[in-house]
Design a protein around this nucleic acid. Sequence first.
DNA 1: CAGTGGTCTAGACCACGAT
DNA 2: TCGTGGTCTAGACCACTGG
Lengths: 246, 246
Amino acid sequence: MGTTQLETVPEPKYWHLKTVLTEALDSEFAVGEILPNERELAARFGVARATLRQALEQLELEGRLQRRRGVGTTVAPPRMGVAVGDAGHAWPGADTDAWQPVDSVEAPPPQAVARLLGTAAGEDVHTVRRTRRTHAQPVAAELLYVPAAGVPGLAGLDTLPGAARARAVLRELQRLELEGQDRAVELGSARADDAKQLDRLPGAPVLLVTTRYFAAGRTAAVSVATYRADTCRLTFGDTGMQLLAG
Amino acid sequence: MGTTQLETVPEPKYWHLKTVLTEALDSEFAVGEILPNERELAARFGVARATLRQALEQLELEGRLQRRRGVGTTVAPPRMGVAVGDAGHAWPGADTDAWQPVDSVEAPPPQAVARLLGTAAGEDVHTVRRTRRTHAQPVAAELLYVPAAGVPGLAGLDTLPGAARARAVLRELQRLELEGQDRAVELGSARADDAKQLDRLPGAPVLLVTTRYFAAGRTAAVSVATYRADTCRLTFGDTGMQLLAG
DNA sequence: CAGTGGTCTAGACCACGAT
DNA sequence: TCGTGGTCTAGACCACTGG
């Protein structure tokens, strides 16, 4: 009867919509171009706005679209490759890296971090906040936790302004000999403070990179970096690989 | 007047809901326990079901919940640490790794992969499908692309059954001397076929790990592995780190 | 101010798993 | 067959951005 897929399960509308939109993006739209608004698109495809939004959400998750309240939906450029292991076994704060210290406080870390550091619950550690920008866009927000015990010469910094304190902590860190590090990457959603720094709404999908730095036979620091999942592709590599560059 | 947060923006309901549920999960529920169903929960919190679902979605994204149609919503165990760079510069298919070959075909790869391999568009490459399980759960599905030019002795395999072909390709690969590799990690959504292997719905959030293998001065193979983002934490490391183990 | 995306509602029906 | 989560609708109002 010429039918090919009759008995098969009905594909959800939003899924089919996503496919159609993907093809349209590939062929008919240029990077940065503004799509018609959601109500218009929904009407055009004959679906409810919520259904259309489900498709747009996925496309944004995949880095194909960028939506901004009050502005509109634009076609996103290909994801940026962001080197995560770039200097290979280097302390954070090296001259080569793209991080910028914001401020620093002394406070007890989250429970999970304390466990990694091996510090007692409630024990204060130096907490440095940094942000990372690439191509003038914020790509990551980081909290770097450094137990006071691991870095001498960090007492009496309380009087320094935040950014200066942050730089001081990083400077002290780099005095130690780095013995090794390891990393983990997982999916998360942006906390309110990180979201603000990343120029996204709270709850936006992010890639959480947790790094442990080893020195003097112990965990000298732990970093939790929050990367925008929509715009970033994290690269690890022996060589300076540029996956999908262009 | 004793008010602390009066002028601030009203927090979205689903966000507040997520916070409340997170605390409840931490204190009142055990791993594997079944939550009340969505209609019940929505009623209990006095919100529409869609709003409740928005909160549940985020919690599932963060790996705190697991939802299965026809069954219910359960409290998820902590994410599994899955070693991604574990054997450090080893070909895929080494005895130590947890991958299991499924089948193999000879076909043109996606455009993006062809670009990485440096093959002409439309040119056939060996495509090996593998899956990875940890603790009896499927955690990843992989497509490994190997240009015929890079691995001699792979002609005339067409008659072999799929799994045998897959093993043959892997065996040939390991004959070459591996000169290096690099990786990229990004967020994606599961294609229909991967979703089936991962026991998830299409569109489920996944971590896409793209690996290039270098040998004989060229890219000898490219692997695109699709990890379940809800249950996996990808680990990279010098040491056999077990972030947040337990 | 007008127009955008973000949130929320109160329903309905469907696909799936267990019984 | 029943109960679950998954999809979908047709509205409403809100928060933000820009002119």
